[in-house]
């Protein structure tokens, strides 16, 4: 008995090893998706301050480029303003007035993992809530996954669980943009009917079907079109409009008008 106790005491580190390793593996594999999301969120929100500090240091180096982008966007907004003369567009603009935009800064971002996440420095107290669309001056970035008080976590295009409804510009055929991992500049547009008229170089934009994104926000350009194995749909390679590795400021699209549409969508998806 005594020698057994001796053995246990002398080799207690082995039991400790098993305990710690089990604990780690439970953390790693025992979490279901919801728990993983919660871990990620709290970990991201907890480290928000830290990421903010780091991105504050790095921000100055990108100012010149950031300025250029903003000037360009200003110019295109100015152009739109001039075009807003005929009454039809004015009416359209009025009907869109329930759409709002919240500017936020990206403080943490990854593009090289299999599932990437972005943290932004605005949260529920700034009016952000789950499911809002996020885009940059260049185009679509992702959708808000969780809104903390001061920070939010965004599910970018470069995440396996993201799916955004998109269409070819000036046409009505639409599909869903997904990302299969790997190249952070290329995503795939799925479920596009096989008879749709898509060719290389076409521009892909948001549909505006749900209230997540406004209509016609650029997503990317078509680089390759091929028939899917089932023969009914097309698989389309899309070169993303946004360089996801290089995000500074983004806009969060808030829309209070279409809650009913979203509710319908949610009921449908259940």
């Amino acid at each position: 008995m005594r020698s057994l106790l001796d053995f246990i005491v002398r080799h207690s580190y082995i039991f400790l090893f098993i305990l710690l390793e089990t604990l780690s593996l439970v953390l790693l594999f025992g979490f279901n998706d919801r728990q993983k999301e919660a871990f990620l969120t709290s970990s991201n929100l907890m480290s928000g301050k830290l990421y903010e500090w780091r991105s504050g240091v790095g921000q100055y180096f990108g100012l010149r480029k950031e300025n250029a982008t903003l000037v360009q966007e200003n110019a295109s907004l100015r152009n739109m303003l001039y075009e807003l003369t005929d009454s039809q567009t004015v009416n359209l603009a009025r009907s869109m007035s329930s759409d709002g935009v919240i500017a936020a800064r990206v403080i943490d971002n990854s593009v090289r993992k299999d599932d990437n996440y972005i943290t932004i420095d605005k949260g529920s107290r700034d009016g952000i809530s789950k499911g809002m669309g996020v885009y940059s001056p260049q185009g679509v970035v992702g959708v808000v996954m969780v809104a903390g008080k001061r920070y939010s976590v965004v599910l970018p295009i470069l995440n396996g669980s993201t799916s955004i409804s998109c269409k070819v510009k000036d046409s009505d055929s639409f599909g869903f943009l997904e990302w299969a991992g790997g190249d952070p500049y290329v995503a795939q547009l799925r479920d596009m009917p096989y008879h749709s008229d898509v060719k290389q170089g076409d521009t892909i934009v948001t549909t505006g079907f749900s209230s997540v994104f406004p209509k016609d926000i650029p997503v990317g350009t078509v680089t390759d079109v091929e028939h899917s194995s089932n023969g009914y749909t097309l698989n389309i390679q899309v070169n993303l409009a946004v360089n996801m590795a290089d995000l500074g400021w983004v806009y969060v699209h808030s829309n209070t008008r279409d809650e009913e549409i979203d509710e319908l969508y949610e009921q449908m998806l259940k």
Partner: peptide, 12 residues
Amino acid sequence: DMFSGTPGLNAA
């Protein structure tokens, strides 16, 4: 792990 959003990976 806590700061990289990878529960248990580095710990294991």
